[in-house]
């Protein structure tokens, strides 16, 4: 072990040499590489976890830079997928951490492969569909996961422990149907750091064998309004929960495979996930170049082009983002017109 790199962390008595050894042997999955994901990935990389898997379906845009700490202007210019840009940056921060970057949806097939190999999951997604899927897969493989979410100056976090705490499905009635999103009310960067401080500290406790130090509480705060709330969550566990009780059937694993289109977090963007597997970007680019009206951009991970008031981004895994609409039907029409 490079004792100098982790010296201050090892000096911290609850971690010590033994805790650091455990960290180095651990594997964390971070779902989402936006604001929360960037920040927790950097913290865990610096702390020296052995392996980090980062899944994200998006690429870097200018409006991310205000709060997504791993990304640079060069990433914006090159339209780098967030997972790839994150990996590049993190590899320079700590080359001893094995980092796997997955550009794609956190969908059931991918999670089934990764989750059994991990020690815990950090939620850095921007939607409850994915969180409910994470919840059920974490219950199935008996892995802890740490919910975190932010909007405006408000943040909320909770550590879900299999067999011990309520799970997200137990709390389903409290999930907002059309909650405020990052784009309709904005967000300030410090609230990201505050949620991530909670999430990463809980992760460090779990990974270093300090379960007794876990908070066990549902924590929320509003930095602007100077509010801080902690609530004992145990009473919210449902004895007949379909995801974590003895009568479990994992409803969120069954529904997920049907989701083919999604409107992205207040982004005026629709994601389409067609049935066909991968896209041959060079082939598609060659086809599109026949139309002189179309402005094309390509990097090894994606192909982006503009037509009318829309911008379409096609990824290697076959997904497409249609920017300039929140109408799923319109997005599908545009997709079929240009991509078959």
């Amino acid at each position: 072990m490079e004792t100098n790199r982790y010296h201050r962390q090892i000096l911290f008595a609850p971690i010590g040499e033994a805790g650091q050894e455990k960290l180095i042997r651990s594997h964390v999955l971070i779902v989402g590489a936006g604001a929360l994901g960037s920040s927790s990935a950097e913290a865990l990389t610096r702390a020296g976890v052995g392996q980090l898997t980062i899944i994200d379906r998006d690429y870097v845009e200018e409006s991310n830079l205000q709060r997504q700490q791993l990304f640079s202007e060069a990433d914006v210019e090159q339209k780098m997928p967030k997972a790839v840009a994150a990996k590049q940056r993190l590899s320079g921060v700590n080359s001893h951490v094995k980092i796997d970057a997955i550009v794609g949806d956190a969908e059931i097939d991918i999670l089934r492969q990764i989750v059994p190999e991990t020690d815990l999951i950090i939620d850095a997604t921007d939607n409850f569909e994915t969180r409910l899927l994470l919840n059920d897969i974490a219950q199935k493989y008996q892995k802890p996961w740490i919910y975190g979410a932010v909007v405006a100056s408000y943040g909320v976090t909770f550590t879900v422990l299999p067999e011990k705490t309520p799970c997200l499905q137990c709390l389903q009635e409290y999930i907002p149907a059309n909650g405020a999103t990052c784009d309709s009310v904005g967000i300030i960067q410090p609230v990201v750091q505050k949620v991530v401080s909670q999430q990463v500290t809980e992760a460090l406790k779990l990974l270093t064998g300090n379960e007794a130090a876990l908070s066990g509480k549902l924590i929320s705060f509003d930095l602007w309004k100077n509010e801080h709330t902690e609530m004992e969550a145990a009473a919210l566990r449902k004895p007949d929960c379909p995801s974590c009780s003895s009568k479990r059937s994992y409803p969120n694993l069954a529904y997920n495979s049907r989701l083919k289109t999604a409107v992205l977090c207040g982004r005026n963007t629709v994601q389409l996930r067609p049935n066909r597997k991968r896209a041959d970007l060079d082939e598609v680019a060659k086809e599109l170049q026949k139309n002189k009206q179309i402005k094309l951009f390509q990097n090894p991970y994606l192909l982006s082009f503009e037509v009318d008031s829309f911008r379409i981004v096609l990824f290697q895994d076959g997904r497409a983002l249609v920017h300039g609409t929140m109408d799923q039907l319109e997005a599908k029409n545009i997709y079929h017109r240009y991509l078959g």
Binding site: D126, V150, V156, P176, A235
Partner: peptide
């Protein structure tokens, strides 16, 4: 912790402590 149907029955008195949490989705 109160269930929704208890909100009208939970009478407030001077000095009471109330904690309110709501979920959000952004990340």
């Amino acid at each position: 912790i109160l269930q929704k149907e208890e909100h009208e029955r939970a009478v407030l008195e001077n000095g009471d402590k109330v904690e309110i949490v709501h979920f959000v989705g952004g990340g």
